[in-house]
């Protein structure tokens, strides 16, 4: 019985041959994935740090970060706010390194992660010396700057109020000397897309050896 069942199916197939249509389908499918692959390759070697995606406090610059970090994940484990995330293999050589997406959960500057890092990738530093990035106000998105209303969410959220963010005729202005780049203002900003963003300007300077 079994043999009779299987034999008609086998006879339909031309064994081991691929039809022209199938071949072309595979070819077109493969060529469509090529740009994707090229993109993945560029992501593989380039740093994952960009606007609102920052390293934890006290981090060494990006030229050293992936070399020094042993990917033990202790910073992510001690973070009481669970703001530190771990990257996976899709980020290539940067897999396993910690990152903070400040528009999701910002850093509350408790400095716990800097105390547990065993390799000095995150150096223990005082809170006010943290420079994860610099908050930049987009004057074409901010409600107050556009004159559409009065919002001071970023000012209210800032841990260094009147120093890092001060109000100039009710409009928020960032002072570079005091901004830690913690991203509390970004998380608090009610506008989408965010009118205040953290630019990781300190992550790409060349580190002192």
């Amino acid at each position: 019985m079994k043999k009779e069942n299987t034999s008609p199916k086998d006879s339909d197939k031309r064994n081991g041959e691929i039809s022209r249509r199938e071949f072309l389908r595979v070819l077109v499918g493969f060529s469509l994935t090529l740009p994707e692959l090229a993109h993945a390759k560029s992501k593989f070697f380039s740093s994952p740090v960009h606007t609102n995606a920052l390293r934890p406090p006290g981090a060494v610059p990006e030229d050293l970060f992936a070399g020094k970090c042993v990917r033990c994940g202790r910073c992510a484990e001690v973070c009481p706010y669970h703001c530190i995330e771990m990257l996976d293999i899709r980020h290539g050589l940067y897999a396993g390194t910690p990152i903070i997406y400040v528009d999701k959960i910002p850093c509350y500057l408790c400095m716990e992660c800097t105390k547990v890092c065993p390799t000095g990738t995150l150096k223990p530093i005082p809170q006010e010396e943290t420079r994860m990035g610099l908050a930049v106000v987009d004057k074409y998105r901010c409600i107050t700057w556009k004159g559409e209303g009065i919002c001071r969410s970023c000012y209210n959220a800032c841990p260094y109020k009147d120093k890092a963010i001060y109000l100039d005729r009710l409009r928020p202005v960032v002072n570079k000397d005091h901004c830690t780049g913690c991203g509390l203002c970004t998380a608090a900003c009610p506008v989408t897309p965010k009118a205040i963003n953290i630019e990781p300007i300190y992550s790409f300077k060349v580190s002192k050896r």
Partner: peptide, 14 residues
């Protein structure tokens, strides 16, 4: 439980 006595794994454990 926010018990931070043990952290990490065998890359670095505390």
């Amino acid at each position: 439980f926010h018990v931070k006595v043990i952290q990490g794994w065998y890359q670095s454990i505390a």
